[in-house]
């Protein structure tokens, strides 16, 4: 497993909603350039884990370390967010802005880049995801797959070190899943550190360096894809995989 220096360390993370414990004691590290897929049944806590890493949910207990420093206490929140980006299931583009403005907004407000520099970066990444020609379109004028590609460009324009993907293709029509996965595949090949919650098992098998299987708020199994997909150690991993791979 490629794991030279840990970029992100999740340490004894817990998250409770009321009396319901969604995450109980999650610990793992992500190295630079790692592409990690998190799989598991609905309600196993995958998305909550990602949202806790980005502090969209407040962890109940435990810590997230980014480059060895506590992300909650020792990092400036805006800086941390700029370095650890997120791509959402429902795209969440800013509806009051064009594709280009979506990509510029964070660069200009958070990174304080001037409009010219920001636009250059934005166009670079919009072109990379194949959305350059649509720079002046508003989200309402784009298809789901196009929106998600703009959302990925928006996240990339911040020059993140880690990109979190929360089921990026789950809200897409089947014929649009491919175009988004293609973009993600090229990012993985480019060496970006990625943490991906997904139901796309073939993507997890082909692209990820490492697969984490979550079950009931715990990491049940963690290994390289070949191992997880061909000879899972745990009975519940086998059961989950046989259920999703049947389809």
């Amino acid at each position: 497993m490629p794991n030279p220096s840990p970029v992100l360390e999740v340490s004894h993370l817990r998250k409770r909603f009321g009396n319901h414990e969604v995450l109980s004691d999650i610990t793992f590290t992500v190295g630079e350039g790692d592409v990690t897929c998190i799989i598991g049944a609905s309600g196993s806590g995958k998305s909550t884990l990602l949202r806790c890493i980005n502090f969209l949910e407040e962890p109940t207990d435990g810590a997230i370390l980014f480059h060895g420093r506590d992300a909650e206490r020792e990092w400036n929140r805006a800086q941390y967010h700029a370095k650890v980006g997120m791509v959402f299931q429902s795209f969440n583009l800013f509806n009051n802005m064009t594709a280009l403005e979506n990509c510029n907004s964070g660069q200009m407000r958070v990174l304080r880049r001037d409009r010219k520099t920001a636009t250059e970066r934005s166009l670079l990444y919009l072109n990379k995801v194949g959305m350059g020609p649509y720079r002046n379109a508003r989200p309402a004028q784009l298809s789901g797959g196009q929106k998600q590609r703009v959302a990925i460009a928006r996240a990339l324009a911040m020059d993140p070190e880690v990109l979190l993907f929360d089921e990026p293709t789950s809200a897409l029509d089947p014929e649009m899943v491919g175009e988004v996965l293609e973009v993600m595949r090229s990012l993985a090949q480019g060496g970006l550190t990625m943490l991906i919650v997904t139901h796309e098992m073939s993507f997890a098998r082909d692209v990820c360096h490492r697969v984490i299987f979550m079950d009931q708020g715990l990491i049940a199994e963690d290994g390289v894809p070949e191992e997880i997909f061909t000879s899972p150690r745990q009975a519940r991993t086998r059961e989950f995989l046989s259920r999703v791979l049947q389809r």
């Binding site: 795209f91 583009l93 800013f94 407000r109 959302a151």
Partner: peptide
């Protein structure tokens, strides 16, 4: 709510996300 979350996820503060998004 997702748009506000996205604004936070690229590092905007409460004020910035309110005023821009």
């Amino acid at each position: 709510k997702g748009q506000k979350e996205a604004a936070h996820a690229i590092g905007m503060t409460h004020w910035q996300s309110m005023i821009n998004v």
